[in-house]
């Protein structure tokens, strides 16, 4: 029997007249790789924001390893083991990739980082370089992150999220803004780097090829509701998902060209 790590129970969220989450309930088991799909405005990022403490739901609960964490701030969520990356990479742009990693490592080490000890100590630098190497970023360790190409920025964003060795990792559109040639190598690298951590992964994605290849389970959102949840092939073949989420693209790929 698989162990439940994170559970969203009946989450509701409205922004004025817009219902961004309408009674969303999702249970995530240890080691699952979940692809979260949906059209723009379906409530995917709202869900990620609620689960990671950035937004408080109007109703419902987020339960992490048996504890109600709904009211916790992002910082507390992160320290518990729920980490995330962002649709637009969230980095420290005027610092090098190595310094970004050093800050992440120092933050993960203790809740009260030192006031007088040096950030850039040899042991921490070695760990920062190892982290960057794990994500294929060794060659840009000394470059300011503002100068990095989009793919590298995305990888660094995910690498920073992994520093705390979180048990649930939420990736918000990890391949958005990445060229078609780069998206699979990027996801391969991410999955390989995360794989050893035995984390539960939920990634928001618009690219169905990525979803099919990397997800072990797919959840489809439409107008703040779950319209399908299950194995990738079954969800992507679901009539409602085809109509509201996937559209003609998957229809063509699964059933051949229309006449």
């Amino acid at each position: 029997m698989t162990r439940t790590v994170l559970e969203a129970r009946n989450l509701k969220k409205r922004f004025g007249a817009v219902v961004a989450a309408d009674d969303i309930s999702i249970t995530m088991a240890a080691g699952e790789v979940i692809g979260l799909i949906g059209a723009n405005g379906a409530g995917k990022t709202t869900f990620v924001n609620m689960v990671t403490g950035h937004l408080k739901p109007d109703a419902g609960q987020v339960v992490f390893e048996g504890s109600d964490v709904t009211a916790l701030a992002p910082r507390a969520m992160t320290r518990r083991g729920i980490t995330r990356s962002f649709q637009v990479a969230q980095l420290f742009p005027q610092l090098s990739s190595r310094d970004n990693a050093l800050i992440a490592l120092a933050s993960a080490e203790t809740e009260q980082p030192a006031l007088l000890g040096d950030l850039r100590i040899p042991d921490r630098i070695a760990r920062a370089d190892a982290l960057l190497a794990r994500f294929g970023l060794a060659d840009v360790a000394d470059r300011l992150t503002v100068e990095l190409p989009q793919g590298k920025r995305k990888l660094l964003d995910i690498a920073l999220a992994m520093v705390g060795e979180g048990r649930v990792l939420l990736l918000d559109e990890p391949t958005s803004g990445i060229s078609a040639d780069e998206k699979f190598p990027l996801m391969d690298l991410v999955m390989e780097a995360i794989g050893g951590a035995d984390a539960t992964i939920l990634f928001v994605e618009h690219d169905m090829e990525i979803v099919e290849r990397y997800a072990s389970r797919v959840i489809a959102f439409y107008e703040g509701r779950i319209i399908a949840d299950g194995a990738p092939a079954a969800v992507l073949a679901d009539a409602a998902v085809r109509r509201h989420v996937v559209g003609a693209e998957i229809h063509r790929r699964h059933e051949g060209p229309r006449r």
């Binding site: 910082r75 992160t78 005027q94 800050i103 030192a114 950030l119």
Partner: peptide, 22 residues
């Protein structure tokens, strides 16, 4: 120090600092 550099990091990206657990 880590705390001092975090101060600079807050100016650049407060959200990321929070999501690093600091």
């Amino acid at each position: 120090s880590p705390t001092g550099v975090l101060g600079e990091a807050i100016v650049m990206n407060e959200i990321r600092v929070e999501y690093l657990g600091a």
